[in-house]
Amino acid sequence: MGPSSFQDDEVSLLRFLTDLQQTAHGPVPHPGDLVWWMYQSPLFKPETSIQLIRNNQQDIQAVVFSDPPEWASLTVHPDLQNPTAAIEAAEDHARQHGRQELTLRTGSGQPDFEELLLKRGYVPSPHKSALMEFVPLPQVPAPVLPEGYCLSNMQGLQDLPARVKVHQEVWNSRRFTLQALKNIQSHPLYDAGLDQVVVAPDGSLAAYALIWMESVHGTATFEPVGVHPLHQRKGLGKAVMLSGLRALQDRSATRITVSTRESNTPAVQLYESLGFKTTGHFLNYGRRFTD
């Protein structure tokens, strides 16, 4: 068993993550997370930043997502007895790019894997992200918006530059471009009806929530969610997420998650107010290379 390049294996990779939504022992990325990570920047090159670990039958057993090279998300199949190859693939990728240290991100609930990281010299970081799961309600409450604001989605709104701009303003980043949005919208997992937005009185976009739902098991995740800095503290984040939850309820979603840094208290409190509960964590382990 050894690492292989990404090549044309995106379908198999998404199927691997889809199946793990039911079989993993702890938090794992949703297929929508991977699509967002891959397509949010047109400069991302999956053939160099994604490595697959396969068994002798060529089934995927682990995924290493490295972007930037000094950071890697490791997702391993629960039946994988020795995930050393996945760790080494991430380390080799970091070294090849001249990095002297590496941070590995993995889900909690894998004591053997965490012990292996410690034996290899990794140190747990106090910084971790909470995976929060929505506790189903008989009926999701209707969103309430300030006067002049309204809810929509990208089925009914064709202003792509406005959709790009609100994301850029929320995250103070120009990495997400019009071409990136078009790439995302062309992906089979993208659903314009689940790309929820809040329209401000002046016609600009004030908030958004991009939701991903896979059709095999019906699991869904919010990634990402944001409110424009000029429109914060108006309840727009809660409103756009309630709208998304109602849309997912209409689609009979079986499991709905969102993740955020545990230190992001406002986001955690928002999600808790909507009925999300923390069910696990994405942990970070770091080490410096001595060779």
Rank of each mutant, 00 (worst) to 15 (best):
V135N: 15
Q139V: 12
W36N: 12
H93R: 15
Q110N: 14
T265I: 14
L181A: 14
P229Q: 13
S129G: 11
S252K: 14
P266V: 05
L118E: 11
F113L: 13
L20E: 01
Q185P: 05
K277I: 07
H187I: 10
A24G: 03
K128C: 12
P68C: 00
L20Q: 10
P42C: 00
V197C: 03
S215R: 13
L151D: 00
V11N: 09
T106W: 01
Y39V: 06
M38T: 06
Q21L: 05
D195L: 05
S108E: 05
F222P: 01
Q158T: 14
T265P: 00
A86L: 06
G203L: 00
H281F: 12
A200I: 05
D8T: 11
E147S: 13
N55E: 09
F282V: 02
D79H: 11
F222W: 04
M38A: 07
T48L: 10
Q185H: 05
K182N: 13
V258R: 01
G218N: 09
S5R: 15
T103S: 12
K238T: 05
D8Y: 07
A90G: 08
Y149M: 02
A206E: 08
P27Q: 08
L34F: 08
V135E: 14
P141N: 07
W212E: 02
V164H: 11
G121A: 09
G244P: 08
E114H: 11
V76N: 10
S12T: 06
N82W: 01
L117M: 03
T257G: 00
V123H: 14
A239H: 03
P229C: 11
H217P: 03
P31S: 08
P266I: 07
R120K: 15
V123C: 08
W71R: 15
P31D: 05
T177K: 10
P29K: 04
S12H: 14
F289A: 09
A72S: 15
L178D: 13
L14Y: 09
L242C: 01
P83G: 03
T254I: 00
D291S: 09
A86V: 02
N153I: 04
D250C: 06
T257H: 09
